[in-house]
Design a protein around this nucleic acid. Structure first.
Length: 935
RNA sequence: GCGGAGAUGGCAGAGUCCGGUCAAAUGCGCAGGGCUUAGGACCCUGUGCCCUAGUGGCUGCGGGGGUUCAAAUCCUCCUCUCCGCACCA
């Protein structure tokens, strides 16, 4: 398999079939020139798939998107379009840096994954400590894998997103955004590692946990000369605060922050200082706080401070406000301290199914013993959940409002009047970063944004979307939703590979912001990459991409670049996995409409689901990843291409498993040997019924194929052009007296070529001179056969189905009567009156009315005794009545299948009309279902 | 919480829009047989339950209820699963 792949990949490369020229013909070898000539007189077709991120090799999961794209590219090429399918590498951002660092630190986990999963020897991975070395190595691997998969990519246009020329392009891109007013600056909370001094994403954390930022409220209670800060998720319960809690064993501090004094736990200082600048002035034991009292920020009422062990000094501020009516822990702590009678509970929310103090009730109902009882957690969860959904405010200015709504209002109000701080926290913490620090939340000043919240911009994006084709169509809603909620998107980071942010060179443009219009760069990259970066000025790109000016004073290459861009743009189809709809693909639309004129807006996106391995999600930790190159070596490119796209609908996840791959390979072999046996010469003589039937099916499929390819019904195609076709050929070989398959194969091979190109190429060559389809040196550039509607014969196909059904019925009866071998088989075809009765029932589906109508019919009346019985059997399946076959049809079909049946049964088979026979069994015949007599 | 998608046989997965030809395509798995020294591959047959000398009957498509001569398919309520909610490629 692999040799065959290499053979044709080499041939395609030699003939440069995947290196299209904008609007004119290059000079590939004479063999293909003719076909390329044909192509360029037709329309161009430009498509791209998301470029890979080379921080590790690719596995078969990655192969789905690229294979889908390639099938489409190959189909379009065979459909006569001049196709451009380029590829590059995305290296922007921090994961590559993180990976290189981990290798440098000899991270056992990563080295062992490389060794065990991808088969990279430790000696080799040890050399990948430099980001550029790493990129060079993995991009080489990925490119080799893509070539081995037979992707029809124009590699001349390859670039890396940190190349100086591409940097220039991104600078131009951002200059356009800035001029359009889409760049803003502000503050932003990010997950931050205090040790690494950097923002962290999932790939920077231990265990690949994705840190989630959550807003919390730091309520400030006047206390001595400052304020006690309490972090809470439920600021709306401020009305029900009866006291405060501190941990009796913790140390507390007095800090100065923006001119004010706050009291918090000592352990809260480090995480909170990422958000607020603070200076510790004094340290004190908890007892110092317990001796004093705080004041309620609204009412000024005195609030005692009590000790409670459930207070975690590491969490929030290390001080907790007590709302015993609604928080089980607060109630329990109060009860534990025997203070229940002394402190009066205050109701804040009304909750259906509960009285005034839900926390007290649930604690009593569940019989929870103390604040250290593990069930206290469950009780809290239940009450919080119920109150969050259905609780209504019972006190304060928002009385009657849902608690969830009141929360936002109260929080905003308190922050505005200075009685609370806006704080953030990592909701799924504690998370440790790879640098060893506990991840906290930092407020980044000088954060630059792309303002996707701009309504006018959104409108333009919607307009573009409305005119685009979205496949699968049901994804359109996801785009609309994403456009509606997108706000400011942070577009710079303090570290990473890529392009420096033009307005602040100390920052880097992050990865989702520098990959939105790079498809435009491909159209000129093969020229730009040979130029000096400083030649790629804003003026040049304005001319090339926006057609500004006449190109005077610009480098000589400018005109050619402009021509390439104008020829290839707009992008006809953009491909990726579905997860990118919510960010990349939507940004892609936004940025195109911001930078380019409407005629260059994208026309289509195609998104696909993932690949599962034996029904399970692929993951490095589970070790169920098959690297793409290893898979190709083992199974050959075509089988993998076939399996990753044919297993499921485009949007659904598909499964990759060995039996599926092997099934494909064995079927391909079968077809190949059938072709060798029966298609070596042109079909001879008059086609018999069986061959006419097979060709009818083939032509029908050829007619249906373009639509299926164009709407990415790849599962449907594989089913029709492969499994069902395969079954047809098997049936045909059984049916045909002298099988011949020449016309069949001349059509079949090009039809499947986009999916299994190497195999098809080999078959195409083996066929030699074509008799029934247009000749082409390579099937990759051959014309897709068009089915001939005149060769589609529904009657013939129906007859064949009929024979199959009769055959099945005979064998089921044989089994029923436990007969190994029959002496003879007699078939009786139903009488005319039964057909007439069927028509009556088809029109009138109520039993009694149909019965009356039947009895009024002179032809049917004589059979009155049988009518009720026949009618009953019709009624059972009223839907099956349409298209009653004629008795002539049935007789003819039986005659055509007679020989096959006799051979299979090893006895004479006869067919007569029901009314021409006096065998009693004959009466059981129904239209389409002859009565069978075996003796 | 908000938004989206989905639930079909041992498994994967069609069918659902436009109700009837649906015990339900196709593939895998499993069982029996053939081939083979054996295994693999390959080929045939079977694979919800029940009855049966006659091509049959019954149950069934997440759960409940409804519409209809007829429901996997239409309506309604419910349960459960998956995905996304950004600064991360």
């Amino acid at each position: 398999m692999h040799d065959l792949d290499v053979k044709w990949q080499k041939k395609w490369a030699e003939e440069a079939v995947f290196q299209p020229k904008a609007g004119a013909v290059e000079s590939p070898s004479a063999a293909t020139a003719r076909h390329l000539q044909r192509q360029v007189t037709r329309d161009k077709f430009y498509l791209t798939a998301a470029f890979p991120y080379p921080n590790s090799p690719q596995h078969i999961g990655h192969g789905r998107t690229y294979t889908t794209t390639d099938i489409y590219a190959r189909y379009m090429r065979m459909h006569g379009r001049n196709v451009l399918f380029p590829m590059g590498f995305h290296v922007t951002g921090t994961p590559i840096l993180a990976m290189a660092k981990r290798i440098e630190e000899k991270d056992e986990e990563i080295l062992s994954i490389f060794e065990k999963v991808y088969g990279i020897p430790r000696a080799v991975s040890a050399t990948l400590t430099e980001p550029r070395e790493l990129v060079a190595y993995f991009s080489r691997e990925i490119e080799a894998g893509m070539k081995e998969m037979g992707y029809s990519i124009d590699w001349r246009r390859k670039f890396y997103s940190y190349d100086a020329q591409f940097n220039k392009f991104i600078e131009w891109h951002f200059a356009k955004l800035e001029k359009a007013g889409h760049i803003t600056k502000g503050e932003h909370p990010v997950p931050w590692c205090p040790v690494g001094q950097t923002a962290v994403g999932a790939h920077d954390t231990q265990g690949d946990a994705d840190p989630q930022i959550e807003e919390i409220t730091g309520v400030l209670f006047p206390f001595e000369d400052g304020m006690l800060a309490c972090a809470t998720y439920r600021p709306e319960t401020i009305y029900g605060v009866t006291n405060l809690w501190v941990n009796p064993d913790a140390t507390y501090v007095k800090v100065k922050c923006a001119g004010k004094h706050y009291y918090i736990s000592k352990e809260a200082v480090a995480p909170l200082s990422m958000q607020l600048e603070m200076k510790v002035e004094k340290e004190m034991p908890a007892s110092a706080l317990l001796a004093s009292k705080a004041k309620h920020p609204f009412t000024g009422a005195e609030l005692p401070i009590f000790p409670a062990t459930f207070v975690d000094p590491k969490h929030g501020t290390g001080v907790v406000m007590s709302v015993p009516a609604h928080a089980p822990f607060d109630y329990l702590a109060l009860r534990d301290a025997k203070l229940e009678g002394k402190i009066k509970l205050i109701q804040v929310l009304t909750l259906e199914g509960f009285g005034n103090f839900p926390a007290k009730e649930i604690v009593e109902k569940m019989g929870i013993k103390s604040q250290n009882d593990p069930r206290a957690e469950a009780a809290t969860e239940e009450i919080y959940k119920k109150e969050a959904h259905t609780g209504r405010m019972a006190v304060g200015e928002f009385t009657g409002m849902l608690g969830a709504e009141a929360k936002e209002k109260i929080r905003a109000k308190m922050i505005a009047e200075g009685s609370a701080l806006a704080l953030y926290e990592i909701s799924n913490g504690p998370i440790l970063s790879r640098y060893g620090g506990l991840v906290g939340v930092k407020i980044v000043r000088d954060q630059w944004f792309i303002d996707y919240g701009d309504e006018a911009w959104k409108e333009k994006a919607r307009k573009c979307l409305a005119e685009m084709s979205i496949l699968p169509e049901k994804t359109r809603h996801d785009y609309e939703y994403t456009i509606s909620w997108l706000k400011q998107k942070a577009c710079t980071r303090s570290a990473g590979l890529g392009t420096h942010f033009p307005l602040d060179k100390s920052k880097m443009i992050e990865a989702l912001s520098d990959s939105t219009i790079y498809m435009a760069f491909y159209t000129v990259s093969h020229i730009a990459m040979k130029m000096k970066p400083e030649q790629l000025t804003e003026e040049l790109f304005d001319y090339v991409f926006l057609g500004k000016g006449e190109g005077k004073g610009l480098p000589a290459e400018a005109k050619e670049m402009r021509r390439e861009f104008e020829y290839w743009y707009p992008l006809d189809s953009r491909h990726s996995a579905t997860d990118l709809v919510y960010n990349h693909l939507t940004f892609f639309i936004f940025n195109h409409v911001a930078v380019f004129p409407q005629k260059h807006w994208p026309r289509q996106t195609v998104t696909n689901g993932f690949v599962l391995m034996d029904g399970k999600k692929m993951s490095k930790s589970m070790g169920n990843i098959i690297p793409i190159r290893a898979a190709v070596k083992q199974f050959g490119a075509d089988a993998i291409r076939f399996v990753v796209v044919s297993g499921a609908d485009l949007s659904a996840d598909t499964d990759f498993n060995r039996p599926a791959v092997e099934g494909v390979i064995s079927r391909m072999r079968f077809m190949q040997s059938a072709m060798e046996k029966y298609a070596s010469t042109a079909d001879k003589g008059k086609h018999d019924i069986a061959y006419k039937w097979l060709l009818s099916r083939m032509h029908k499929r050829a007619i249906a194929a373009p639509k299926m390819y164009e709407s990415f019904q790849l599962r449907e195609i594989s089913l029709e052009l492969f499994y069902n076709t395969f079954n047809d050929v098997q049936w045909y070989l059984k049916r045909a007296e002298k099988p011949q398959l020449r016309e069949f194969f001349e059509m079949w091979v090009p039809l499947i070529a986009p999916i299994v190109p190497h195999y098809a190429e080999e078959m195409w060559q083996a066929l030699g001179k074509k008799h029934y389809v247009k000749e082409a040196a390579l099937v990759a550039v051959a014309e897709m056969p068009k089915g001939d509607a005149k060769k589609v014969d529904e009657t013939l196909e129906a007859a064949e189905d009929y024979i199959l059904r009769v055959r099945e019925d005979i064998s089921s009866i044989m089994k029923l009567i436990k007969k190994e071998k029959a002496e003879k088989v007699e078939l009786f075809v139903a009488a005319g009156w039964k057909r007439k009765l069927r028509e009556i029932v088809d029109k009138e589906r109520k039993f009694d009315i149909a019965m009356k109508a039947a009895m009024a019919d002179a032809e049917i009346k004589p059979h009155a005794s049988e009518v009720a019985k026949v009618l009953t059997s019709y009624m059972k399946n009223v839907g099956a009545l349409a298209g009653t076959p004629s008795s002539e049809f049935e007789m003819e079909a039986l005659l055509s299948g007679k020989k096959l049946l006799e051979e299979e049964l090893g006895c004479p088979v006869s067919a007569v009309l029901e009314d021409e026979s006096d065998v009693p069994k004959a009466k059981f015949a129904l239209p389409g279902k002859p009565s069978i007599m075996i003796s």
